[in-house]
Write a protein that binds this DNA or RNA. Structure first.
Lengths: 239, 239
DNA sequence: GATTGACAGATTGTCTGACAATCTGTTCAG
DNA sequence: CTGAACAGATTGTCAGACAATCTGTCAATC
């Protein structure tokens, strides 16, 4: 019955302005237009978007709830920064959740999901050599999207999406890692084959392993970055 | 260094109105003043709280992001309801996260946390016989709070708090289960001893077991409730 | 009698303008 | 160089307004 309904679903076009603003800001933060730490002055956003302060503020509140933006009282919102410690915790949670997703995928083995996973994986293999990593990133994102969907748990999906947004934040802070691509590909292959084989335990382990590896690189880069530019660390120097 | 700062932390009294409203609404939903499905008309909230529509709306946006409130476009916000299916997924995620928390607690074995856990457990034992379950609930909440803190992961903490708020929602939908208390106590004892023993695997298992048991009861009650009162189910009847 | 269409009432979505509270950087006196 | 005072910037909040949209009702129509 919900199947029928979803077929003639007209997708609710009447989107609110604040929703548009929200997405606009989210992608602006995601692609680095707004950098971590940068302040987001309400009036400026009003001018840039052409909407009133009301809508801007409500959109900001949403992003704040997602952790993408941090608001200091009477000082205003700014794009969230992320410390090495936080990043580490973030990756831990991500590993836990993606492990769950992988495990459930392997358990269900929904043919549709399996097909999408393989499709994206093969797309990744094809575009892996390109200098421009955008295609690769897109395929990887699609792969994850499929896996999340396949786990069949709305809440896990939602939480993971929030986490991924914040990881993107991290990617802006540190630089994109280069040579991990090939390792990464192999790890994803392991995930895929485990899921296809219906081996839940292996799938979970592969997901966790993959995130742990990615985390190690990211955290390392972040720490280096911090040690070099953190003013509070500099202050501790005796000279 | 952050230790020093946190000691003389003056806790930032200058709370914004929207924050007060937010908490007020949250507890109102939590204690059943606003029941699931009930509409929350902005003007009415304005009158009841004495604050302007701006603050109300921003507070509602926050609660919406947490899933406690659902807003239908041009119709307005209402306290979220929760289906048996959603509840099941919610408990799955909760089991995953609390399992993690338990495991980490057992790994760290922070003496301070251990003491708090035992203290709350013993408090639970003492007040378990009372007809009024409020004390018991308070102790249980404190027990969980300690465990969450002990896991040392801010994100897990935050997500779990959100989930717990929504479980409370569920508690409003179905009725409080009565005779589970004694089972519940024994399960919590298992968690505690595993953590105290530093047995991470056992702690994780105990946490997951506990949630699964709680889930089973809750879901059952919810399904019964749904079958009885769901109008869409009634409509499908051929007579 | 059931279906359709129109209408009124209720509420939200959004804008504007305003003003106090608060934060921040700078200047100036000691 | 230290500390106080001040000015500018920005947020937090309110009130009032108005269009867009949803919902229920009621009459007209088949």
């Amino acid at each position: 019955m919900s199947k029928i309904k979803s077929d003639l679903n007209v997708a609710r076009e009447a989107v609110s302005l604040r929703f548009l603003v929200e997405n606009r800001l989210r992608t602006a933060i995601g692609n680095g237009t707004f950098k971590p730490g940068q302040r987001l002055v309400e009036r400026e956003l009003c001018e840039q978007t052409g909407v009133g302060r009301t809508s801007i503020r409500e959109a900001l509140r949403q992003l704040e709830a997602e952790g993408l933006v941090t608001t200091i009282p009477h000082r205003g919102p700014a794009v969230s920064t992320i410390s090495a410690e936080e990043a580490s915790q973030l990756y831990d949670l991500r590993a836990l959740l993606e492990g769950f997703a992988g495990r459930e995928c392997a358990r269900f083995r929904d043919p549709d999901i399996l097909a999408r996973l393989r499709e994206q994986y093969e797309r990744m293999v094809v575009v892996a050599h390109q200098d421009d990593h955008r295609d690769l990133l897109a395929a990887k994102t699609a792969f994850y999207a499929a896996m999340l969907e396949g786990c069949g748990n709305t809440f896990v999906q939602r939480v993971l999406n929030m986490l991924l947004n914040r990881v993107t934040l991290l990617r802006m802070t540190s630089m994109t890692q280069k040579n991990r691509i090939h390792h990464s590909l192999r790890e994803i292959e392991a995930i895929l084959t485990a899921i296809e084989a219906g081996d839940a335990t292996a799938a979970e382990a592969a997901c966790i392993q993959h995130i742990h590896n990615a985390a190690a690189v990211a955290i390392e880069a972040l720490k280096a970055h911090e040690a070099q530019s953190d003013p509070s660390a500099a202050k501790l120097r005796v000279r």
